[in-house]
Design a binder for these strands. Structure first.
Length: 800
RNA sequence: GCCCGGGUGGCGGAACUCGGUCAGACGCGGUCGGCUUAAACCCGACUGCCCGCGAGGGCAUGUGGGUUCGAAUCCCACCCCGGGCACCA
């Protein structure tokens, strides 16, 4: 072999790692600090794409770096095998989901091995395996026992294309997150997880984790905590109390009307005129997107009834209007047109009284100011009045302080085939009966026709559906809905710790040893879905005393997308890049390095074929340098450290800092390129021992990004295995220079550069700078009025 | 509309935490040279823009101001791009 040949090198090292089980870790005590590095598990729809290459290139670099810094690293891998992505892929390719899923898993396993990713494969699993989902069901039952999983009828989001209900989180701008169809609202009985019980903790604990600020913000917004008050408006005529939620109880005296959401169950009871009927029906059939359009004119119909404003005692008119949402607050609002833009618009539209109660500028205004038209609260600052009004309402029993959230409970049931069965039996006599633990798993039966049809395809599997009730022994029916895929992925990182346990989902002590995940890596598209659900699961499981952590992912890194010619890659555009094509052509090391070199990994980046060639050239040069350095003789005595030796230590320092701080892989790789270029420039002149050291160092430093070449080069230079070596340390003595370049400036403009000893004092530097012959020319009779000296850097003469 | 990012050569990007070496590391692309019968590969030199034969000079980090001896870096206003939120009371 006389040139870099990844086709030889890569299988060679992959075989060593597989034969020697190099990346496997045990759960026994080691005395080393642990690190848990995890990439988000992939959906099993087809083959790995370029995003996966980036995901694992980043994760593997992190894992290798930590290992060589003396940590014991858990780096496992598995598959999110149930759910819409896998099932839709199966439908598209006309296969049984189980078959297409297993094929996809096979492809992932094979390709990740070809990429040389350092994974402990003994911990691998798919969430569709009965050994796994048995415990998903077990967790569901624990949730059910605690009232955290419940069934109720509600207005839910329905995707007519995927023929299933969706969680709120899966509806983006009124459309299905997966297929993009407009969702409809249906009144259905469904299963929910009571994530709302955890709203405050999900919010507060964001403080305890190191996540990208924008992801934290997204979760905050999604939880949408608002503090305010519940105020009761009474309809005297019918003797009914209507509480509303408001964040502005200080504006209560300005409430001149009252609005119910069209879905509010009392609307037709209050008024069943044809106008009201028609309005309600129209609102119900409109899509969430149409209704949510902020810019359209306000609509509404009066109900011909009144409620009493508890502050003023006045009767104010009741309306029904679709700008009020049933699911937020109480489904009813007080209308304060003077101090709320929406209410102002509505009141203007329907000629309702607008009464200012805060002196805060032009109406409508939401700013602070002194109270007016508010009885005994007049003159107070509105913030102060806020407190006093709520106190007054509380003492009168007309209201209370409260908190409202945007977060809704997680709708987890799906009317689809390919998912984890919900372990519940419907008995005519006993109602909902949980399947006993010793009968788990409730296995997903094979069915002929698994196409979505609006109800679960499992209903057709009669043998499976008809069971005896575990409680009374009478005839009963299995629950036929399956679970949302996000349930499966809400606890998989726990199972990796103890993947073969068949007595429990995990051993608490073992999980305690590994959790939390120290570095989690994945796409930002899961900012609320998966990342919120997994946090909820961990908190709920911790409350059950099954876990000792409150947060699953201590640090999160969100990678940017890879585009092609500036455009998002998609099959329909035909601009996809298959990672394996490049692995075939250039090798895994080149593909991995390129995707890290292309730019900061958190940014979106554009894939350019010519750039791949450049990275391959660099790796080839490094290999060639190693091959040639291997042939050189012994080290002649040298006087002091060579420039090449210094450069090697500079590179160690640079790469180490880039790795430790913000995932600076692009600049880390650039530093190794610089070192390699320096080796080429100096390989004739530098002492051979230094050349060998520089080449070995380059191999050692490139190892986290290009493990095969790194191992090869390091072995060529030292005969040792790089992954068994500690991460190199830069010698501070070789980082420091004896001599610095002193910059001489006049009025901040550079005029000269001089060599100066790095230890020179301010006076010596000024002396040196004054001696510059260029200074005399520049001065040209001018007068030095001030001298700025920055030790180690420059001398600046201010001249007039 | 509100909240975050971000605007640097022909391109991707460095430097931007702490203001300080003619801004532009590294890579792509380009020009030239070497090797070769030739091409590819490889090796080497050059490559921000403008003027100039040259020495050299001028202009340059979205735009306009400001602070400073000195600003890509700090401050203010504006423009543009990307992302998030958005009738949540």
């Amino acid at each position: 072999m006389d040139r870099y040949d990844p086709k030889t090198i890569e299988p060679k090292w992959q075989k060593v790692w597989a034969d020697e089980h190099t990346w496997e870790v045990s759960n026994d005590a080691t005395g080393k600090p642990k690190t848990y590095v995890l990439e988000m598990l992939p959906y099993t729809s087809g083959e790995p794409h370029i995003g996966h290459l980036k995901n694992y290139a980043v994760g593997d670099a992190v894992a290798h770096f930590h290992r060589r810094r003396g940590e014991y690293v858990l780096h496992p891998m598995g598959y999110d095998a149930f759910g819409l992505p896998a099932e839709n892929h199966a439908i598209k390719t006309g296969q049984q989901p189980r078959k297409s899923t297993d094929e996809s898993i096979e492809a992932f396993g094979r390709q990740l091995r070809r990429l040389g990713v350092s994974i402990d494969w003994t911990r691998e699993f798919g969430t569709h395996q009965p050994e796994y989902y048995r415990w998903t069901q077990w967790i569901f039952l624990r949730m059910y026992e605690r009232g955290l999983a419940y069934r109720k009828e509600a207005a839910v989001k329905w995707c007519p294309n995927d023929q299933t209900v969706l969680a709120n989180e899966q509806v983006i701008d009124g459309r299905c997150e997966r297929c993009g169809h407009l969702v409809e609202i249906r009144q259905l009985e469904q299963w929910f997880f009571k994530i709302t019980d955890y709203a405050d903790r999900l919010l507060d604990d964001l403080e305890t984790i190191e996540w990208p600020p924008h992801v934290v913000t997204m979760q905050r917004n999604w939880i949408g905590r608002s503090e305010g008050a519940e105020v009761v408006f009474r309809c005297e005529e019918l003797g009914i109390d209507y509480p509303v939620f408001t964040t502005r109880p200080d504006t209560l005296f300005g409430a001149t009307f009252f609005v119910l959401a069209p879905e509010h169950p009392d609307v037709l009871r209050l008024s069943d005129t044809p106008e009201v009927h028609e309005y309600v029906n129209r609102a119900l059939t409109e899509s969430a997107e149409e209704r949510g359009d902020e810019h359209r004119q306000k609509t509404g119909v009066p109900l011909g009834r009144t409620v009493t404003n508890p502050a003023t005692g006045e009767e104010i008119p009741m309306w029904v209007a679709d700008y009020v949402l049933l699911e937020y607050g109480t489904g009813a609002v007080m209308g304060v047109p003077a101090h709320d833009a929406r209410d102002f618009e509505f009141a203007t539209q329907f000629d309702i009284e607008i009464r200012r109660v805060i002196d805060c500028g032009e109406l409508p205004c939401t700013d602070d100011g002194p109270m007016v038209n508010s009885g005994r609260f007049d003159g107070l600052h509105n913030r102060e009045a806020y407190e006093q009004i709520v106190d007054w309402l509380e003492s009168d029993g007309k209201g209370r302080r409260t908190v409202s959230y945007r977060l809704r409970d997680w709708l987890l049931s799906r009317q689809r085939y390919w998912g984890c069965p919900i372990p519940i039996v419907h008995c005519e006599k006993d109602g909902l009966v949980p399947v006993p633990d010793d009968q788990l798993p409730v296995e997903l039966p094979d069915v002929e026709d698994y196409a979505p049809k609006g109800k679960s395809p499992l209903a057709a599997a009669e043998d499976w559906v008809n069971v005896t009730c575990p409680k009374c022994g009478g005839p009963a029916l299995r629950e036929t809905d399956t679970m949302d895929t996000f349930v499966d992925s809400s606890w998989y990182f726990l199972r990796y710790c103890d993947p073969h346990n068949d007595q429990a989902p995990w051993d608490r002590e073992i999980v305690k040893k590994w959790m939390p995940v120290d570095q989690y890596i994945g796409g930002v598209e899961h900012a609320i879905l998966h990342l919120m659900y997994a946090r909820f699961f961990v908190k709920a499981l911790a409350d059950m005393e099954l876990l000792d952590v409150q947060e699953p992912f201590a640090r999160l890194f969100t990678q940017g997308m890879i585009t092609r010619d500036g455009a998002k890659m998609s099959k329909s555009k035909g601009n996809t890049v298959s990672p394996m094509e490049y692995v075939d052509r250039f090798g895994a090391d080149t593909a991995r390095c390129y995707i890290l070199f292309i730019g900061p990994p958190s940014d979106d980046a554009d894939w350019q074929d010519s750039g791949v060639g450049g990275v391959h050239r660099f790796l080839s040069r490094l290999w060639t340098a190693a091959a040639e350095a291997g042939e050189t003789g012994s080290d002649p005595d040298s006087s002091g450290p060579s420039d090449l030796l210094r450069k090697a230590h500079w590179a160690i320092d640079k790469v180490t800092r880039d790795m430790q701080t913000n995932f600076g892989f692009n600049t880390a790789i650039a530093a190794v390129m610089e070192l390699t270029n320096e080796i080429y420039r100096q390989r004739e002149s530098a002492p051979p021992g230094d050349v060998r050291f520089a080449v070995a160092t380059a191999g050692s430093l490139i190892f986290p990004f290009a493990p095969h070449l790194g191992a090869e080069v390091y072995e060529m230079m030292t005969g040792r295995r790089v992954w068994e070596e500690p991460w190199p340390e830069a010698d501070p003595a070789l980082l420091a220079r004896d001599e610095i370049q002193l910059v001489v400036q006049v009025n901040g403009k550079l005029i000269d550069r001089l060599a100066a000893p790095s230890t020179a004092s301010r006076e010596e530097l000024e002396e040196l700078a004054r001696g510059s012959d260029k200074l005399a020319v520049r001065l040209d009779g001018g007068e030095i009025v001030k001298t700025v000296i920055v030790p180690g850097k420059l001398v600046n003469f201010v001249v007039r």
